[in-house]
Design a protein around this nucleic acid. Structure first.
Lengths: 211, 211, 211, 211
DNA sequence: CATGAATGAGTCTTCATTCAT
DNA sequence: GATGAATGAAGACTCATTCAT
């Protein structure tokens, strides 16, 4: 079993980074919340930054497991029956939401990090790239929609997927707890409303496109 | 009339806050970028926080001017001719985008701030509230769509507007410069693609709804 | 006039570095001894290391002024009369000792630093190089002693000058205060004894060589 | 009998102390270089300081064995034939150098320690005292040179022996490896040059004095 | 003997803010 | 308005030493 203190540190850091931001989180706060000696943090991690990297790497591993399940997406695309298709999409979207909600703390950190200007492309973008490229690949395989088209069509899909597909989901989980507390939503209502909104906009566009 | 140094300070702070975040921005950095003496910053502002507040207040003023132009929205809603309606919507959306893009730096800061847990509702939410409520009001006035409905319908609209209308726009301008640099988009292409995406999803939903 | 606090910091640091060593000296100790706020040290210097570098650079400047007085050495070498020569040498050596004794604190630090293994050649060696090369040049100009000889003769001179000329002087000033306190020498006696010892050994060798 | 791990610790510590200094050496570094667990160091030694003391004590034991060989010095002094005397001195000096070179790492540490101001007289001085006093005793026994003299003559001898006899040797071994690496000397050349320099200066003075 | 984990007390450095002129 | 200097309170990180097994 991985070390208990290390896990406590990672948990505390994830909570604090997501609540206050990386910069505003004090190593002291982490040690207090985790109830471990401050120096122990430096026994397990080289720096505050390395804690964050560890959390991000862990997220990436999980993303891979969930999203590189090629079969699922392929199967959905194969479905001809419209009702079946809708049901499948719903299952898929709920699976994704379950995952994203469970990881919402670190995803919030990921989003914040993406909003800071850094030399290299932020992780959020890399994850989006992987997901969108995978989707584009599937779409083009099945429906030849990208046949004639080219870079410009590709750009349009990227933009649409990112800003009306990927980011709404990211925003949804990043603001999940805030909506519950500021607008007094129940978890169930919030989620149902979001799924409906997603269907009404992004998925409606997909459906139309595929017909 | 505002002093030249004060403006230099505000500009420098806006740039740095949006690039590195409020916490990671040093008062020193601001004074250096603004090319003013560090102590002078405290002549004009009580604290680093007050610089941020000043920037936010300024944004709010501008938001009011642009968005509380009640007429515009009302007019659009009145239009029966579908082509005219579409044209009007396009004009409206471009006006909004022009504004948001011009304010993208402070909006980025606004978004970051909203991602931190604070006692009071973040400004981003308040702005969203105003906009969405205004829209709901108009919609209900004109079309009675909210007649029978209730809290649940209201909630659904709020969620849809926020996550598929408001936030995509916010994200668009927050990541505007990053998309240009990471994905080598021209400003024009990026914008056209986004407008198209917005039409295909959020506006398509509105259109359908209003029919 | 250079800033008072900066000078106080440099003086305090020089004393502490020479007494306890660079590593064992706390920035806290420096601020307390200098009676300045600890943070002020970082207003004037980037790091503890930079204080040391400043002290070393200052020493080098002084070394240049004192030792690059080419005339003095040349003149001594020109003297044919043995008594006059001896007198001149004595004057020269006293001038050097006056300087070294006045700089004994930072020289002690210089010696300690030279005893640590670093990538680049320690400053003590560089100073020695300059001095010895200068002397060799003079000697060879005047007396052709290096005529036939070669690298091996040159090596011998370097070693002799370093270990029996340069280093005894460095050691003398590095241990100056310790001899006074451990062996209860008066400053005058200690110095006279050292000058005598230097004449009896290193200078006697020079004299013999030049005859 | 000493344990293998203990020896590994002592060796690692000696190397690190001589390279980086006692203060700059981390117990961590020692454990890593020695390839033993850090806590094990505290099984064998009470503190980092005790490792150093152990090394110093070990040096003192060896010094005693080598230098308290009273006979050797006495014998040399007895020799009337000048050639024989010279040969004996050379043998003696080489024996001493062999020893000092083999102990050069800890001697370097000893020298550094002597350069720090401490309450009690540094070990380097104590060793020098023993050696010089021993020599003075021999000299006075054999040649009555100190007959009339007094404290002042004694002081002169002490100073001469320390700064032109003892310290050049200490410096030679302390900088032995540095000269080889910075000035590209071979071990043999460096040593021959030093012996020659020592003969030309300090030993020439002795010879003259004894005539 | 040996070791992975843990810790108290620093240590250097930073930073928002203030002072004095 | 403007500025160089100054400062209290932290902040990240370190390190010798100890504990528990």
């Amino acid at each position: 079993m991985d070390n208990e203190s290390k896990i406590k540190i990672l948990n505390a850091a994830e909570n604090l980074f997501s609540e206050k931001g990386f910069e505003a989180t004090r190593v002291n706060d982490i040690s207090e919340l985790a109830k471990v000696n401050k120096a122990l943090i430096y026994y397990y991690f080289e720096s505050k930054k390395e804690i964050l990297d560890t959390l991000f790497n862990s997220l990436i591993e999980d993303v891979k497991v969930i999203f590189f399940d090629e079969e699922t997406i392929s199967k959905i695309m194969d479905i001809k029956n419209i009702d079946l298709y809708n049901k499948s999409v719903e299952i898929w979207i709920n699976k994704v939401l379950d995952f994203l909600i469970s990881k919402r703390k670190i995803i919030k950190v990921l989003l914040k990090q993406a909003l800071n200007t850094v030399e290299s492309k932020p992780l959020l973008f890399s994850i989006s790239d992987i997901l969108i490229n995978q989707e584009i690949k599937k779409i083009s395989e099945k429906y030849d929609v990208l046949k004639a088209n080219s870079k410009s069509e590709f750009s349009q899909i990227m933009v649409t997927e990112f800003f009306t597909g990927f980011m709404p989901m990211i925003n949804f989980v990043a603001f999940y707890d805030d909506w519950i507390s500021y607008y007094n939503f129940s978890e169930v209502d919030l989620r149902n409303n979001f799924v409906q909104a997603f269907k009404d906009t992004h998925l409606a566009y997909h459906e139309k496109r595929l017909n």
